[in-house]
């Protein structure tokens, strides 16, 4: 029991980062390469922290406010980013995160600046986190098999094709940004109300890289991809604890090895392999297209 309890902080971290990972996943799924969700998490976290500490609002209200703040900024972000594509979109959203960070440092009297915002009561425990994480997975699965998921896939795979079928690409991606913003804001709030303090650098370049790694390593298409990615990369440092100094190196090597041998991410590569095997079993004759590549 004691050993189980000692893993609880790790499990909490897993649940929070799962939410962050899905807020990243949903925009990538819709073919938008935005990493702005980290900035939206920061906005959610600070909103919840300030409302709780300075105004003493109850938990449901602060969580809702944090989520709505993420949603609002996510929607705003969608408008300019719709003009951009690929890496340019990524860099513009990176600029957004940096602006949020610096604004945070600048507005010292509200946010606590570089020192961070502390003295937040711990209102969120493992149970609450678990409920929200499971809810998020459910919503992701529901979206996946709905018209929205199909529209996301079409826009991601080929925008020109998607519009030829009557899909409004900008609007579809805007919906993804909104869902992403909502999740980012919500889990940012949960993080703030779970960990006593928030500080700006916790939502920076480093977190962007970590979250992106979860999703790309696990798989960007299947709903289970981010789950596998987060589980693996959160467990990894614990498993390699005896290696002490070399832990970061192991982490890096795992990223390289998995990407090299499963370039679509763990889950998506497995899914694709299975589909290929099944279709080959169903149609034993060698297909023309496969020969052509």
């Amino acid at each position: 029991m004691d050993t189980l309890l000692s893993f609880r902080p790790l499990f909490d971290l897993f649940l929070i980062h799962l939410g962050f990972a899905y807020s990243q996943y949903i925009v990538l799924r819709a073919g938008a390469f935005s990493i702005g969700n980290v900035g939206l998490s920061a906005i959610g976290a600070y909103t919840a922290a300030i409302l709780t500490v300075n105004y003493g609002l109850p938990l449901p209200v602060t969580l809702l406010a944090g989520a709505l703040a993420g949603l609002a900024f996510g929607t705003l972000l969608a408008i300019p980013l719709a003009r951009l594509r690929g890496v340019y979109q990524a860099i513009a959203s990176l600029a957004f995160v940096q602006i949020v960070l610096s604004a945070n440092l600048y507005a010292e009297n509200v946010t606590g600046g570089a020192m961070g915002f502390s003295g937040i009561p711990k209102l969120v425990g493992t149970g609450t986190l678990l409920v929200f994480a499971l809810g998020t997975i459910y919503v992701m699965l529901a979206i996946s098999r709905s018209r929205l998921g199909r529209a996301f896939d079409a826009v991601r795979e080929d925008e020109g094709m998607a519009v030829s079928l009557g899909i409004n690409a900008a609007r579809t991606q805007a919906i993804a940004y909104m869902i992403s913003g909502l999740l980012a804001g919500l889990f940012g709030s949960l993080e703030a109300l779970h960990s006593y303090a928030v500080e700006p650098n916790q939502f920076g370049f480093h977190l962007i890289i970590v979250i992106l790694s979860y999703v790309v390593l696990g798989g960007r298409r299947s709903v289970w991809g981010p789950l596998v990615g987060v589980a693996l990369l959160i467990a990894l440092p614990e498993i390699s604890r005896p290696l002490a100094d070399a832990r970061i190196m192991i982490y890096g090597l795992i990223l390289m090895v998995v990407m090299n041998f499963m370039p679509r991410g763990i889950v998506d590569t497995l899914v694709a392999r299975r589909a290929r095997r099944r279709s080959r079993a169903a149609n034993p004759e060698v297909r023309q297209a496969e020969v052509k590549g």
Binding site: V216, A246, R247, M249, Y251, G252, L255, V257
Partner: peptide
Amino acid sequence: EFSALISSIGANLVLVSI
């Protein structure tokens, strides 16, 4: 596109760690 991004992050971490 994406896999190279993460793979290079991995390589960066190896260098940083050394």
